[in-house]
Computed example of a mutant assay.
Amino acid sequence: MVRSPYELSTPPDVLDGLHPRLRTYFGAVPPGHVGRGEGVFDVVGTPRWWLWPVLVWFARDAVMFPVWEHDVPFTVENRPVRVGRGRERAVHVAVRACRTFRFRGGDRTMVDAITAGPDGLVDHLGRHGRVSALLRAEVDQDGSDAGALRLVSTRVTFRVLGREWGLPAVVAPRVTLVERFDDDADLQRVSLVLRAPFVGTLFRYEGAFRYAVVPEGER
C-alpha cells in the first residue's frame, strides 16, 4: 500500500481529524498520477524591501523571492519521488511540490520536498534541498479552522559540504503553515508565514485554490 510522508510520520488519530477534502491533498499520490491545483494568492513576499537582498540568495535555489505582490495567480503540482539524504544517502519517500507564481515581472517557481524522517516530517527547501525544516503536525479540532492541518517548524538545518548544521533555537526562523478547507467557497485555503527572532516576518503567502489528483498528462 502506497503511503504519503504525512501518513508515514503523523499518528493516525491526528490525521483522522483532517477535513475529508484535505485527505486527498495530504494522502499518497498513486504512481502515474500527479496532484494539481490552481488558484490565487492574496499576498506573496514581504513589504520589507531591506530584506530583499537576502531573499535574492534564496531565490537562486527556488526557495522564496524578493517580492511583495497582491492577487498573484499560481499553480501547484505534487509528485511522488524518492530523495537521498545523509552520509549514507538513505532513500526516503517524498512528495515534491512545484508552486509556480505568475508575478507581474514573470513566472517564478518555488520547489520543496516533504519526507518522513525518523523524528517526523522534514521539508527540504529549494531545488537542492540545502535548507531543511523539521515539522510538527497538528490538526485543529475546534473553531473556524477545525479540520485544518497546521505544520510548525521545530528545527532548521543547513547542508554544507555534505554535513547538516543545525541553527540554535534563539536565532532559527520558524515556519508556520496552515492548510484548511472552506466549505462555503469550495476552496482549499493556505497560509504560510516565515518569522525570525528579533526581525519578525521574513516572507509569507496566503490564498486559495482547487486541487485534484489526476493521471499524468491529464490537465
Rank of each mutant, 00 (worst) to 15 (best):
G129C: 12
G217D: 00
P118S: 15
R85I: 10
L18G: 10
P173L: 03
G200E: 01
T10K: 08
L202G: 02
Y205N: 14
V111Y: 06
D13N: 08
A146F: 03
L55I: 12
F101G: 05
R102C: 13
G35P: 01
D182G: 06
L22Q: 02
V43W: 15
V156A: 00
R102F: 14
V72N: 11
V160P: 01
P197T: 03
E69A: 03
A97L: 06
V170H: 10
D13G: 11
E77V: 14
R210L: 06
R3E: 01
A208S: 13
L55E: 14
M64V: 08
G17K: 14
A196L: 05
V175Q: 07
F58P: 05
T75W: 07
E7M: 02
T109K: 07
M110A: 14
H92L: 13
R89H: 03
G17P: 09
V139P: 00
V139E: 00
G143Q: 07
L134K: 09
F158Y: 15
G126H: 09
V91W: 15
G17F: 06
V131R: 15
G86I: 02
G84W: 10
R219A: 07
L22S: 03
D71Y: 13
T75N: 13
P30Y: 05
G117L: 11
V93H: 06
G143I: 07
L15T: 10
R108F: 14
Q188W: 11
S191N: 15
S191V: 07
Q188C: 14
A116C: 14
V199I: 14
R99T: 06
L187V: 13
P12E: 10
A172E: 00
D142H: 10
V76C: 11
R130D: 06
H19G: 06
L22D: 00
V56G: 01
R48C: 00
R219C: 04
R89G: 00
V95P: 03
A185V: 00
F74Y: 13
G17M: 14
P47R: 12
T201N: 09
V178M: 07
D140Q: 04
G37N: 06
A59S: 15
